[in-house]
Simulated scan of single mutants.
Amino acid sequence: MLSTAVAATAAIGAAFGLAASSATAAPASTSSTASIHAALGQNSYGYGYGSGGYGGYGYGGGSGSNGTGSSNSSGTSSLASATSAQEVGVVDITSQLTYAQAESAGTGLVLTSSGEILTNNHVVEGATSISVTVVATGAQYTATVVGTDATDDIAVLQLSNASGLSTAALDTASDATVGESVTGVGDAGGTGGTPSASPGTITALDQTITTQAEQTAASETLSGLIETDADIQAGDSGGPLFNASDQVIGIDTAAEQGGATTAGYAIPIATALTIAGQIESGQGSSTVTIGYPAFLGVEVDSANDATGVASSGATIAGVIDGSPAAAAGLTAGDTITAVDGTAIDSASALTTALGAHAPGDTVSVTWTDASGASHTAGVTLAQGPVA
Score class of each variant (00 low, 15 high):
I226H: 01
D206C: 00
G164A: 12
Y49C: 03
A19Y: 11
I344V: 14
Y47M: 10
S286H: 05
S35W: 00
V185H: 03
A244S: 15
I344D: 07
S78T: 12
T194K: 15
N161W: 07
I202F: 09
A14Q: 00
G62I: 14
S129K: 10
G193L: 07
Q86S: 09
A328W: 14
S31N: 12
A332M: 01
D369V: 15
A34Y: 11
L273Q: 14
S223R: 11
T307D: 05
Y141N: 00
L157A: 10
L170C: 02
G50F: 12
G378M: 09
Q96G: 11
A155H: 03
G282T: 12
T337Y: 14
E116D: 09
N43E: 07
S245W: 03
T191N: 07
T337Q: 11
A26K: 11
A353R: 09
S219Y: 07
G147R: 06
S44P: 00
P293K: 08
L109N: 03
A28M: 05
S113C: 03
A356H: 10
D334Y: 14
Q207D: 06
L165E: 03
A213Q: 15
T167R: 01
A328P: 15
G56H: 12
G62L: 08
A260L: 05
S196W: 02
T376V: 15
A370Q: 08
S84R: 12
S245K: 13
I209C: 03
G190Q: 00
P324F: 08
D321H: 10
A25M: 05
G126M: 08
A332Y: 01
V145I: 15
P268R: 04
A260G: 08
